Simulated scan of single mutants.
Amino acid sequence: MINVILFSALLISFITDVRERKIYNVITFPTMLIGLIFHTITGGWDGFLYSFLGLLVGIGLLFIPYLLGGMGAGDVKLLGAIGALKGTLFVFQAFIVISIVGGLIAIVILLSKKEFGFFFKKIMFTMKFRTLDGIEKEDMHHAFPYGVAIVIGTILYSGVGLV
Score class of each variant (00 low, 15 high):
residue 5 I to M: 11
residue 6 L to S: 04
residue 7 F to E: 03
residue 7 F to N: 02
residue 10 L to I: 03
residue 10 L to K: 02
residue 11 L to S: 13
residue 16 T to N: 08
residue 19 R to H: 10
residue 19 R to G: 06
residue 20 E to Y: 15
residue 24 Y to E: 04
residue 26 V to S: 14
residue 27 I to T: 04
residue 28 T to Q: 09
residue 29 F to K: 03
residue 30 P to M: 11
residue 30 P to S: 10
residue 31 T to G: 05
residue 37 I to F: 13
residue 46 D to I: 00
residue 46 D to A: 09
residue 49 L to M: 12
residue 49 L to A: 01
residue 58 G to W: 04
residue 59 I to Q: 00
residue 61 L to F: 06
residue 62 L to A: 07
residue 65 P to L: 12
residue 68 L to D: 03
residue 68 L to V: 03
residue 68 L to E: 10
residue 72 G to F: 12
residue 76 V to T: 02
residue 76 V to L: 06
residue 77 K to V: 02
residue 83 G to C: 06
residue 93 Q to L: 14
residue 94 A to E: 04
residue 96 I to G: 09
residue 107 I to Q: 03
residue 108 V to G: 07
residue 109 I to N: 09
residue 109 I to R: 06
residue 111 L to W: 09
residue 112 S to M: 14
residue 115 E to K: 15
residue 117 G to K: 12
residue 123 I to W: 12
residue 124 M to R: 13
residue 126 T to C: 14
residue 128 K to N: 12
residue 129 F to P: 00
residue 131 T to S: 15
residue 137 K to F: 11
residue 141 H to C: 10
residue 142 H to M: 14
residue 143 A to F: 15
residue 144 F to N: 02
residue 150 I to Q: 06
residue 150 I to K: 08
residue 155 I to Q: 03
residue 156 L to D: 02
residue 157 Y to E: 07
residue 161 G to C: 07
